[in-house]
């Protein structure tokens, strides 16, 4: 069983309980935390309330079923759920399966590196704060980019924009991930 590092966010702890112990109470807590966010996200992206709830259902069930793939040393809970949400939204609306990279393999459930988990969470927090500090126009563009509303061309033509201030945060995360992945293969 995974030793629980101190100071881990509740979301990460719930997700690990779901992954390692199939803990239903933890899943219900995750649902209460993320279902309203997912519904808001889908409706911001143009879905009706009914469609948005369908997406929430699909995404949360996928979170339960694919929990074994969650790796808190590499991705915060929010990023993992975002990834699933984009997949489901494409599957549902475009009626085609989104091409996904080869699976890098399941994370270990025995030796969790608490330091790495905290680093991932701190980064996620820093990203959120960087997002909050943007001026409203920049923020709107970032949101539209990650809601999938901007084409590749629109993203490339916004020099420095889609990532703007948060670019440096993404870079930092990148360096750490590169390091992690290098050790993996």
């Amino acid at each position: 069983m995974t030793p629980t590092p101190t100071k881990m966010t509740p979301a990460t702890a719930w997700m690990l309980a779901v992954r390692d112990r199939r803990d239903r109470a933890a899943f219900a807590a995750l649902f209460d935390e993320y279902a309203p966010k997912l519904k808001g996200f889908a409706m911001r992206g143009g879905s009706s309330a009914t469609e948005a709830e369908e997406i929430v259902q699909e995404v949360m069930l996928t979170v339960w079923r694919k929990a074994a793939q969650f790796d808190p040393e590499r991705a915060p809970v929010s990023a993992w759920i975002y990834h699933i949400a984009r997949n489901r939204q494409i599957d549902v609306f475009r009626k085609e399966r989104r091409p996904l990279p080869e699976d890098p393999g399941l994370p270990s459930t025995v030796d969790l590196d608490g330091g790495a988990v905290l680093a991932v969470e701190q980064e996620a927090n820093a990203l959120k704060e960087a997002l909050a500090r943007l001026n409203p126009d920049q923020r709107e563009m970032i949101e539209r980019a990650y809601l999938g509303e901007l084409s590749h061309q629109e993203i490339s033509s916004q020099t420095g924009l889609p990532l703007g201030t948060i670019k440096s945060r993404i870079r930092l995360g990148l360096e750490r991930l590169r390091h992690e992945l290098r050790e993996l293969r």
């Binding site: 966010k37 519904k39 808001g40 915060p76 909050a132």
Partner: peptide
């Protein structure tokens, strides 16, 4: 792996948007 990491970093940014874009109560 470099681009796998870069993609994960973008998903982290997407996660930050998911966390902050606003909530809607579910039934």
């Amino acid at each position: 792996n470099d681009c796998r990491a870069a993609c994960a970093a973008h998903e982290a940014a997407g996660g930050a948007v998911l966390e902050t874009v606003g909530e809607e109560a579910v039934s």
